[in-house]
Design a binder for these strands. Structure first.
Length: 405
RNA sequence: GCGUAGGUGGCGGAGUGGUCAAUCGCAACAGACUGUAAAUCUGUCGCCCAAUGGGCUACGCAGGUUCAAAUCCUGCCCUACGCA
């Protein structure tokens, strides 16, 4: 049996948001929490010790990437993700569902993201929703972004891979739709995701049973006879529905009624009313199970997400932007490449407690970025992650303190 | 001094009569990034303007040929290498 559980500590009066604790076999996650993304079993540019010292509680890796490289069987041989990458805290793996979108509908469409945006073209026919990835009822056939070889994911396959990887929280296989897709396509994709959710759950249970007979030894990483250290992941189902209220609610009803340990809220949103859409879903999902808002991570979005019932968030924004020279500060963003910072000998943000701000100036970072030094990405990632993780922690504290929202 | 090669926008370097304000790379300047094909991508990059257009000055310098010159001719200046 899994020792996974979720406790609500305090709710935001009159709202869906709450502070709580997710317990996993690798430790607790105090929520609301920002989940650091470490797609390929590494948080880019950082060692796990750095990630830990930032205050990060949990890391999310990706099924698609690790399946392709180095392969889930190898990770299993290594003793599972935690051991392989030297991260002893809680871990999540994404199901590969997002890549159905990023390699499919969004592939080559420079401007298409999870959010609707002015200027991006509407996808006119379904042929365009098939680039490196092709979807059918049973699963997704896709080409490797590494070498172009063809592979196939089904809900069952995603579960098998995720069990091999060995995270504490794994996700059902879903289709993340494009915000450009029309209502009919969103509905069709959502219903397919629902069928995939049931199949994911069935396969997960089957794998848990096998695992119960031969639980994984967390030290050796090998499957050993019952009685040694046990390991079993919690499975989160993913709701979809795009920008449409009726679809979002239907998805929450269908997925929420299934025997998942928690839920992911996926898919695309309108930027303006993302919080509202999360609220539609949270109001229907079981209150006593955690909700993860997939792929969302701008500070303003995190606030809206929390108010509307999301407990955890993962996003590449802090680390990707950091590597690209954009630093997160209270007032918004700062592009360290801007000429004004060349001779600015103050920290990124006065009062910031991160290692970077404690020890380095904007001028130094500006120099590292211009010189294309690797340390640039490291120091910037430390700052952005620290910023966002602590931004979220502060909101948690505000909830516990009973502050108004 | 002689010979050879060459002098192009911040730099490197294309172009050798018209479609050249001049390919491209770098640098510079700005922007984007939301479950990571991302240490990536996009735009601007001679000057001026009532600017999806127009004007001006430009390819070492000074002349010339031509309807038209960065491109051809003459002279000068400079640089690199070789020989004395």
């Amino acid at each position: 049996m899994s020792d996974f559980n979720f406790k609500i500590e305090k709710k935001i009066p009159g709202k869906l948001g709450r502070a709580g604790i997710i317990h996993t076999s690798h430790g607790d996650i105090e929520t609301p929490a920002f989940v650091t993304v470490g797609t390929k079993a590494t948080v880019k540019a950082l060692t796990p010790e750095m990630v830990n010292s930032l205050g990060a509680q949990v890391v999310l890796s990706n099924t698609y990437h690790l399946y392709l490289q180095p392969g889930d069987e190898l990770v299993k041989k290594a003793g599972g993700l935690h051991k392989f990458m030297n991260w002893s805290g809680p871990m999540m793996t994404d199901s590969g569902g997002f890549q159905v979108f990023s390699l499919g509908a969004a592939f080559g469409e420079g401007g298409v993201s999870k959010f609707t945006k002015e200027g991006t073209q509407k996808i006119e026919d379904e042929e365009k929703i098939a680039k490196l990835a092709k979807i059918d009822e049973d699963g997704v056939t896709f080409k490797s972004c590494i070498d172009g070889s063809e592979h196939r994911f089904t809900p069952e396959r995603s579960m098998q891979i995720q069990h091999n990887l060995g995270a504490d929280i794994i996700f059902a296989f879903d289709e993340c739709t494009s915000p450009m897709a029309d209502y009919d396509y969103q509905k069709q994709a959502m219903e397919r995701t629902h069928r995939w959710a049931k199949r994911s759950l069935d396969e997960h249970k089957k794998l848990l049973q096998n695992n119960a007979q031969f639980p994984r030894n967390l030290v050796s990483g090998k499957d050993e006879p019952r009685g040694l250290a046990s390991w079993s992941p919690a499975l989160f189902g993913i709701t979809q529905g795009g920008r449409h209220k009726d679809l979002r609610e239907e998805s929450a009803r269908v997925i929420g009624a299934l025997d998942f340990d928690g839920f992911g809220i996926g898919g695309s949103f309108n930027k303006e009313d993302m919080g509202t859409a999360v609220g539609w879903v949270s109001a229907i999902l079981p209150e006593d199970k955690p909700r993860h808002l997939l792929g969302i991570g701008e500070p303003t979005d995190i606030i809206e997400g929390i108010k509307n019932g999301a407990d955890t968030f993962d996003c590449v924004t802090p680390t990707r932007m950091a590597r690209n020279g954009t630093l997160m500060v209270k007032d918004g963003r700062l592009n360290i490449f801007n000429a004004q910072y060349r001779e600015d000998f103050s920290p990124i943000e006065d009062g910031c407690g991160c290692y970077t701000c404690q020890n380095y100036t904007k001028a130094y970072l500006a120099h590292l970025f211009r010189a294309k030094e690797m340390l640039a990405g490291t120091l910037a990632s430390i700052h952005n992650l620290y910023f966002l993780i602590n931004f979220t922690k502060k909101i948690r504290q505000d909830i516990l303190d009973g502050k108004e929202f």
